[in-house]
């Protein structure tokens, strides 16, 4: 059985900048895969290529048996691949419930069914208590949770999360980790982008490390934390101050 997601030599150039260069990786069904790398490594760019927000300059992206490179985002979504945004994009003037219903409508035309599905998922992710609040009125932690719930409502086979834990306090992070595990246990594969290594390690089955657009290491978390290339990449980071959660 082929892997759920398979990237082969994916590159993305912005003018003279190689945001991604020959990135290859494999996500097996049922896994939680961590994608890490320092600031500007090209993680979000890779997400955008895979989710159809822009086409890769070259390379192949296979998802569930289809070559999806160059597909429009809505088509990628319908094929079963959902993503969240690093900079949250909740619908500000819609209620939390309505936000999630938009996701649910990807699989149904009936409002009643979408509403029921949304309510069920809000209970699952612990947002039911805010169902009638406006998207704009949520805390950053709840906004991130809402984006995740909304993406989940599209019933994806693969869920790609871009820094859902950035900007959260330790207690909120612990909740998020529990939730991501629960999502995997329901049968959804997860590709998790995080900037902070410590968050990714305990929950990932497999970790891929990007630096300056290239893959510099991959393997189980245990070996990654000792990889000299990874350590070097992250060491240089100290001198580049970074604004968590807003980048």
């Amino acid at each position: 059985m082929p892997a759920l997601l398979e990237l082969d030599a994916v590159s993305k150039r912005f003018g003279g900048l190689d945001a991604n260069r020959d990135v290859s990786l494999v996500v097996e069904e049922g896994q939680i895969v961590g994608l890490i790398g320092p600031n500007g490594a090209g993680k979000t760019t890779l997400f955008n290529c895979v989710s159809g927000f822009f086409p890769p300059t070259s390379g192949s992206i296979r998802f569930a048996g289809n070559e999806i490179a160059g597909w429009a985002p809505e088509r990628v979504l319908r094929a079963g691949l959902a993503r969240t945004f690093q900079v949250v994009r909740t619908f500000p003037e819609m209620t939390v419930l309505d936000n999630v219903m938009i996701g649910a409508f990807a699989r149904t035309n009936r409002a009643g069914e979408a509403r029921a599905r949304a309510a069920e998922l809000l209970a699952f992710t612990g947002l039911a208590g805010r169902a009638h609040a406006r998207g704009a009125d949520l805390t950053i932690a709840d906004k991130k949770r809402l984006e995740l719930t909304r993406a989940l409502a599209t019933q994806p086979r693969l869920l790609m999360l871009d820094e859902v834990m950035a900007g959260l306090n330790p207690a909120e992070r612990a909740q998020a980790v529990t939730l991501i595990r629960a999502i995997r246990d329901r049968g959804t594969t997860v590709l998790l982008v995080e900037h902070v290594m410590e968050v990714v390690m305990p929950i990932s089955d497999h970790v891929v490390v990007l630096d300056s657009g290239r893959k510099i290491a991959e393997g189980p978390p245990r070996t990654i934390v000792r990889d000299p290339n990874v350590i070097a990449a992250y060491l240089g980071e100290k001198y580049r101050p970074r604004d968590e959660g807003t980048a």
């Binding site: 979504l77 319908r78 994009r89 619908f91 500000p92 003037e93 819609m94 996701g103």
Partner: peptide
């Protein structure tokens, strides 16, 4: 619902499968 999503944020709408 889709129209309101479009009004709120077109990119987010696309990411959720809204044509």
């Amino acid at each position: 619902y889709y129209l309101r999503a479009i009004k709120n944020d077109q990119q987010a709408a696309r990411s959720l499968g809204v044509p």
